[in-house]
Structures are given as structure tokens and as C-alpha cells.
């Protein structure tokens, strides 16, 4: 497994993060160390073992599909960094087409 700048750049893009050059080289060595530790898992024989996905052994809990515990528009927008009273405001998604 090659841990290099390209891999870090790809992960940054996927995670919507942006590292500085020095953070990036720190991340390369951290990731190498962590993956060395994680590589150990290959020693464990897991042939025929089913992955453990749910810790809770109870059957699925279903409920009626009712509308309840609603937030008002005002409450939902309360913590938004930018809003106009009715909507969240975000930077422009579709750029203006130049004529």
C-alpha cells in the first residue's frame, strides 16, 4: 500500500477537508504508522466468519409512520449561519452562464 501525497489529496477531496503542505506530510507519516498497526489484522484467520454488523440482537423495532416531534421553521433555522427567515442560504451552486 503506497501512502503518498496523491492518496492524501484524494482523501481530502472525499472528506471535504483541505490540509496545508506540512499537515499533509504529517498525515502521510501518521497514516503509515496507523496502517502498519492495522495491517496486523491480516494475520487473523477470518475464513467463513460473518461480519458483525448489529450489536443489538433484538428484532427490528418498527413504529407507525406518524408525523410528530416536529420543529417549527423558526427553530430549524435558529442555528443556521445564513438564512432569510424561510430558507437556509448557501453559496451559489450553479454558476451564471457567460453570454
Amino acid at each position: 500500500m503506497k501512502i503518498d501525497k496523491n492518496l492524501i489529496l484524494r482523501l481530502e477531496k472525499l472528506a471535504r477537508l483541505e490540509l496545508s503542505e506540512s499537515e499533509r506530510s504529517g498525515m502521510i507519516s501518521d497514516l503509515k504508522n496507523i496502517l502498519d498497526m492495522v495491517e496486523k489484522l491480516k494475520e487473523v484467520d477470518t475464513m467463513g466468519i460473518a461480519p458483525l454488523i448489529y450489536l443489538n440482537e433484538d428484532a427490528n423495532q418498527l413504529r407507525e409512520d406518524e408525523v410528530k416531534n416536529e420543529l417549527s421553521n423558526e427553530e430549524a433555522l435558529k442555528n443556521a449561519p445564513d438564512r432569510d427567515g424561510e430558507f437556509f442560504i448557501v453559496p451559489k451552486v450553479i454558476p451564471r452562464v457567460k453570454k
Binding site: 472528506a15 477537508l17 483541505e18 430549524a76 442555528n79 445564513d82 437556509f88 453559496p91 451559489k92
Partner: peptide, 23 residues
């Protein structure tokens, strides 16, 4: 940075807003 929490201002695209706010 959209519905709550810290948002970096003065960015021009949505992707940049996510990226800078999280970073």
C-alpha cells in the same frame, strides 16, 4: 457549515464552503 455551526464566509461555491468550513 450549512444548517448549523461554523461557516467560513467569503467563499464563492458550495463545495468551497463545505471544505473551508470543515477545515
Amino acid at each position: 457549515g450549512i444548517r448549523y455551526g461554523y461557516r467560513r464566509e467569503d467563499v464563492h461555491t458550495l463545495d468551497e464552503c463545505y471544505k473551508k468550513s470543515r477545515t
